[in-house]
Structures are given as C-alpha cells and as structure tokens.
Design a protein around this nucleic acid. Structure first.
Length: 423
RNA sequence: GGAGAGGUGGCUGAGUGGUCGAAAGCGGCAUCCUGCUAAGAUGUUGUAGGGUCAAAAGCUCUACCGAGGGUUCGAAUCCCUCCCUCUCCGCCA
C-alpha cells in the first residue's frame, strides 16, 4: 500500500517505476488517481454537509426554550440528513473502491534492481562452493525412496499429492536441520518465536498476501483463518498497530513453522520429489528496522542465510531478482539457489527481501526516529533461513555416495547422535 | 458449551442524550527555577483524511470513545448484531 498523497504529488515517478514491473500497472495506477480525485471531491461535499448538520444540532441545543425555532431547525436538520445520506453512500462506495484498487498496487522497486521481464534477467551476484558434476548422482527422490526415508504413496493416501511422509532418518534429518538452523539464528541475535500457524485476514493483508493472491492459500471453512504460507505473516504481524521504541530496533525474530501453499499455478512443476510440497517446514528470519539501517540489515540477513548453506557445505549462488521476477511486496530481493547435481542446476532455497515501508503501511508499524518526531513507518525485511525440505533434498544429492548412501554433513552429526551416514 | 462483568486518549480512570476529542492523575515534551541530584512552577501534549499554501509552519473542516448497523435535529452515553478481554462452572490435550 502506498501513500496516496505521495502518489498524486509525483505520478510520473510511480508510473515509470510501476511500468518496469508490468506495463499494465500504469492503467491501474491511473484508475487509482482518478478514484482518489473523485473521492476527495465527494468527501469535501460530505464534510460540508456534516458541518451543517453539526451546526444545526448545536443551535438546537442552545435554543431549547424557543419551541418554534427548534421545530424549524429540526426540519432543516432532517433535510440536511437526507441529502447527506445520499452523498455518504457515494463517498463510502468510492472509498472502498479506492482502497481495494490501491491494495493491488505492488511495491516500488529499488534503483539497484535490474530491469527484465522474467527470471532469465536476474543478476548473479556471487557463487559459493564447487558444484559437483557427476552423472551418476541420482535425484533426491530416488535416493530417498531407496533409503526408506521418503514415502510418497502413503503421503498421498493420508492427504493428497504433494504431501510426503518422512520416516526414520528422514524425519530425524528434518528435525536436525530445524534445530541447527534455529540455533544458528540464535547466535546472530534472532529471538526465537513459536507463533500461531493459523492467521487471520488482517494479518494476511498486512504482509501483502491478500487480496491479490487469495487462492494460493488454504483457508478454514466458516472461519476467517488461513494456514500461514510462511512465518513471515505471523512474525511481521506481531507488531501490527504498534509504535516500537527506537532502542528496540532492529527487532530480529526467527521461527520454525510448517508452511502451507496450494501451488495452484504450478500444476506440472516439480511433480516428483519434495521440492514443491503443499506442506513444508521452514525457518524464517524477520527484521523490523529503522529507515536508515534497513539496507544494511537486509544485506546482513542475507548473509545470515548464506552462512547456513556454507556451514552445511552446500554450493549455492546468490542472485538479485529483476523487476519482472521480484515479489509483490518487495522493493529488493536476493534469492539463494542451492546446487542440485541431478538436475545440473541451481534451485531456489531462500528468498531474502526488503519491503521498505510497504508492509509497515499495511500493518501500521511505526517508530520514532527521535523522541520529538512524529512516528513514521518502519522497514520490514525477511528471508528464509532456510527452507528445510529443499535443504534435505539438496543434502541427499550433494552428499550422495556412489553406493547410494548419504553422508551426514558435519554440522548435523551432533544433532543425530554422531551419525555419519544414512544407509 | 453455560452464567456473569467489562472494552474510553501512551497508561490509570471519570463521564448515562446537547458547547465532550472527551475531566482528573500519571507519563512525554518545552521553558523557568533551585549550587549538582531529587523536588518544584508554567505551558504543551492523540490518530487519520480533506481544504488553504510553491512548500513547510500556521489556520481551518471532517471522522474516530472495541467493530458494524439503528433511533434522534443531536450518541462515548439509548437499541441491535458481531468481535475481544476478565471471573466462575463444565469439558478437554
């Protein structure tokens, strides 16, 4: 959500920026400006009538003894009210339309974000590790089935496709990854949170999932609750409608949560394996910062996520998403992509975004830069640190031996009673 | 699930139909004062939207007393619905 006042003061700036994301957004923008104009006009009329109404009421209060005068004024009041009712209806109508449209406007991207229509225009920032290129490496699902740690059929039996059962060492590895990542985040000063996994509509709207992406999420029938698609939603909304004292910034949270996504638009993508599931586990890192430090904190959060991959010794690369690939609410976003030998390619395992004040406006989270200042909106930042299922899949490929067993990364061995190999 | 109580500004808390955006206290901010500290004096202090203005300041209008409706010329105050909190009882991991 943008500041409407700013929108109308420098429309050319917004049109230019929005068109870089998607040309059709300019039309939406112009529609919003027009609605804003109409809304302000009708509001002026309504305000005027409301003033008249108040004046009449006050006048009656003052002239209680004069019966004739009161009667006349009452009639006048009734007249004003009937006019006002009509205008207020239009006012409400326009306000709703305006807000509804404005909620569909994505964030403005940073100048540093490369222009481009799709992921092919993302910019590679760096690479880490040596990707193994060996044609005998089996896809993670084959190894997982062979080792008896994935059970795809029973996942489907219990739920439906894109649900998988982890068993034995599979379950243990998942839990070891969870603990390792949370422990690592703790050393970086992130406070661990265990939030509700079901979240309400206000929360989903606050972080930008709604209204645009309704349909991508599971929702409870007859309830106003959604299954959170990411812990970003509950964590950021912890501070909705709050003014955070300056000395508490930056606020840093981490959380393990299961995440639920319908994957509605991904019908034929990644149907095999555990890369794209309806339910997956994730450690999320969230920061709430002042405007001045947000850029620096974003870089650091990304490094915190990278460090997990480095400690797990998984080769990865870091890309800066282009205007056509970056998320709705983000103004700048790095993706971390881990190497998958069986696919001979890098696949996304973390997405670290700076949202600027975009989410803060929707969630109404503020801080005072100085005690005397008026509260202003914070910046919010978040990233996966990391997606656990994808990390497990990457381990099954990058740590695979020619025998078909899987070595346990050093940093996880302590979480698994010293186990060095899954066979 | 049953019974009751309640939701007012950053906080505490008054206000049961008219000049209430809301007393009082606390806190915050500013100035002054006392050799420092503690204390004291005075003033000031909500949010959002609109108008005016080149812009800011200022001025001004409107809305907001959990949310949404209703009654009335006029609602924090009366009526209805919903949400939330607390207490007791029941049930339960």
């Amino acid at each position: 959500m943008h500041d409407l006042k700013d929108l109308r003061t420098r429309p050319d700036y917004y049109k230019d920026k929005l068109s870089k994301r998607d040309k059709s957004l300019v039309l939406l923008f112009e529609e919003i400006l027009k609605l804003d104009q109409q809304k302000r006009e009708i509001q002026a009329k309504a305000d005027e009538l409301r003033k008249k109404k108040n004046d009449i009421a006050d006048e009656i209060g003052r002239s209680k003894d004069n019966k004739d005068k009161v009667e006349t004024l009452k009639k006048e009041g009734t007249d004003v009210n009937s006019k006002l009712a009509e205008i207020e209806k239009g006012e409400m109508d326009l306000t709703h339309k305006l807000i509804e449209k404005a909620m569909w406007l994505p964030n403005i991207v940073c100048d540093s974000v490369p222009e481009g229509e799709d992921e092919t225009k993302n910019k590679e920032i760096s690479k880490w590790g040596n990707p193994r290129i060996e044609n005998w490496v089996k896809p993670h699902w084959e190894t997982g089935i062979k080792l008896g740690i994935f059970d795809f059929e029973r996942g489907v039996k219990i739920a439906e496709s894109r649900f998988t059962v982890l068993s034995g060492m599979g379950a243990k590895l998942e839990r070891a990854l969870m603990n390792f990542m949370l422990d690592n985040a703790a050393t970086k000063g992130y406070k661990e949170i265990f939030p509700p996994i079901l979240v309400n509509k206000d929360s989903m709207t606050g972080t930008g999932q709604l209204p645009k992406f309704d349909g991508d999420f599971y929702k409870c029938e007859n309830e106003f609750l959604y299954l959170a698609p990411t812990a970003e939603v509950p964590l950021t909304n912890l501070h909705r409608d709050e003014v955070i004292p300056l000395e508490q910034l930056p606020v840093k949270y981490c959380a393990y949560t299961p995440c639920f996504r319908r994957e509605a638009g991904a019908a034929s993508k990644d149907t095999r394996g555990i890369i794209r599931q309806h339910q997956f586990n994730k450690i999320e890192l969230v920061k709430i910062t002042s405007v001045e430090t947000s850029d620096k904190e974003h870089e650091e959060l990304t490094k915190d996520a990278e460090e997990i991959l480095q400690k797990l010794e998984l080769p990865y690369r870091k890309t800066l998403l282009c205007t056509g690939d970056i998320g709705f609410s983000a103004m700048k976003c790095y993706d971390l992509e881990v190497w998958f030998p069986s696919q001979n390619t890098y696949r996304e395992i973390s997405s670290c975004s700076n949202f600027g004040s975009f989410q803060a406006r929707r969630t109404n989270i503020k801080y005072k830069p100085n005690p005397k200042d008026k509260p202003q909106f914070v910046h919010t930042i978040n990233g996966s640190g990391l997606a656990i299922g994808r990390t497990l899949a990457a381990i099954l490929e990058n740590y695979q031996t020619e025998k078909g067993t899987v070595l346990v990364p050093k940093v996880l061995q302590g979480y698994l009673g010293g186990a060095k190999e899954v066979s």
